[in-house]
């Protein structure tokens, strides 16, 4: 059931990437600026398709929105130490993959509070770390790995170049064989047409 009305009683149907649908309250959904911009005033005819995200992720995101319905208006990022017990449990029970999916969905739905809290948690993982520790946390390749990767790429590029050169050589040979009759044919046709045109214009 969907409706353009803005009452918190109204429920909206959300469709996930699996094609499953589930209910979300209007009040929870209104925390999404994307929803507000797209559907709030015009309403939605049928389920709202957020089909880039799976059901589990969307349910997690809207679980957060339902919980924070009665919280005061969002006014900038809160320090992680100020998070309630519920908030902390919410984040702690997510695994890494779910966490990243929630950030992506929250970012798409433009839910400022949730995106901000998620980002603050990532920032915490980086704060005070040295370069090597950071590289591990954010899975960046090290300088040695980059060098090795570059060498492999250079080898691949050199091999590809050789193949391309061979292919070009073969093509050139074929072209010289095939090109002659085609060119001759074109020239003959041109000559015929010119003669026809001249005889026609003389008449």
């Amino acid at each position: 059931m969907t409706s353009p009305a803005s009452s918190s009683e109204v429920k909206y149907l959300i469709e996930s990437s699996e094609g499953n649908t589930f209910d979300v309250s209007g009040a929870a959904l209104r925390q999404s600026n994307t929803f507000n911009a797209m559907f709030l005033n015009i309403g939605a005819d049928g389920p709202i398709p957020f089909t880039d995200y799976n059901e589990a992720t969307l349910k997690k995101v809207f679980e957060y929105c339902e919980h924070s319905v009665n919280e005061e208006n969002y006014s900038g990022p809160k320090h992680q130490d100020d998070l309630s017990k519920w908030d902390l449990n919410f984040f702690n029970e997510m695994d890494q993959k779910m966490f990243i999916d929630v950030i992506n969905a929250s970012n798409f739905l433009d839910i400022e509070r949730l995106t901000s809290y998620c980002c603050e948690r990532i920032a915490r993982m980086l704060r005070g770390k040295n370069t090597q520790e950071m590289i591990k946390v954010i899975t960046l390749p090290t300088a040695e790995e980059l060098e090795a990767k570059q060498k492999v790429e250079e080898k691949k590029a050199a091999a590809a170049k050789k193949v391309a050169e061979k292919a070009a050589e073969t093509a050139e040979k074929t072209e010289t064989l095939e090109e002659l009759p085609v060119q001759q044919l074109v020239q003959t046709t041109r000559n015929k047409l010119t003669r026809k045109y001249l005889s026609f214009s003389n008449e």
């Binding site: 990243i100 992506n104 998620c118 591990k136």
Partner: peptide
């Protein structure tokens, strides 16, 4: 570990 650089630009 997670891929920081794969996050959406806003995040």
């Amino acid at each position: 570990p997670f891929k920081l650089l794969h996050l959406p630009a806003v995040a």
